[in-house]
């Protein structure tokens, strides 16, 4: 007779001892816990490391040093154009105003002048807060009309002496700063995250009109393209 038949027979007899819950429960719970722990480690620790690639900015930039030299704070370089659009990261033309010649003997400064200024190449800055293409965002509406300061969304970047490493999401290809450093999406400060919920949170809190100025209606296309 086969082994299977033997087992059935024994079980039917009730002569052999059937394993009790306490005897099998231990290993099952153990394996459950191992699975749980591993997945928690993967999800909270390993996944974020794999998800983001780290990129260095082409030139390191010292905000503090520049802030000491300008009169108008952030807007000295990140200014509004006459048509109300926001200039964002400075273009080479602005930098050349001061950096036509090498200003100091730091390796960074020499490289900047040689690689970009002399070759008339724009610096391919990596923009931490670049929103997806489908989002309409107007700086002038927030800064000039809403009287918000830069720090509310961008944090204390203006007080940094070097640029943070740019982390790029390997799937969405956007900066980590949009989702926020915390993989769980938890935030302590207003500038920790720049997702839609964060826009909405402030808009609700401030009682911002949620409808289109032109049509008077709300909906996706008020903020999305």
């Amino acid at each position: 007779m086969s082994k299977v038949d033997d087992t059935k027979h024994v079980a039917a007899d009730g002569q052999e001892k059937v394993p009790t819950a306490s005897e099998t429960g231990g290993p099952i719970i153990l394996f459950f816990m191992i699975g749980l722990a591993l997945s928690l480690v993967v999800g909270w620790v390993i996944f974020p490391k794999l998800l983001y690639s780290q990129k260095k900015q082409p030139i390191d930039f010292n905000h503090v040093q520049h802030m000491e030299l300008v009169d108008d704070g952030c807007e000295s370089c990140h200014f509004f154009r006459d048509d109300g659009s926001f200039s964002g990261a400075p273009t080479l033309a602005q930098c050349i105003d001061c950096h036509e010649e090498v200003q100091s003997d730091t390796e960074n400064e020499i490289r900047f002048v040689e690689e970009y200024v002399q070759k008339n190449r724009e610096v391919p800055w990596l923009v931490y807060s670049k929103q997806p293409q489908c989002v309409y965002f107007s700086h002038v509406a927030h800064v000039k009309m809403g009287n918000m300061d830069c720090v509310t969304c961008h944090g204390h970047i203006g007080e940094s002496t070097e640029l943070p490493v740019y982390e790029q999401n390997r799937i969405s290809l956007y900066s980590r700063n949009i989702w926020g450093k915390n993989i769980g999406g938890f935030k302590k400060n207003t500038w920790d995250r720049m997702k839609m919920d964060d826009c909405a949170e402030c808009h609700v809190k401030e009682g911002v009109r949620q409808a289109s100025v032109q049509t008077g209606k709300g909906g996706c296309f008020v903020c999305h393209k």
Partner: peptide, 16 residues
């Protein structure tokens, strides 16, 4: 089975 159930529950508790 226990390991994968644990893994599934754990994954659901992460942002992944």
């Amino acid at each position: 089975l226990a390991l994968s159930v644990g893994g599934t529950v754990g994954t659901a508790l992460t942002p992944l």
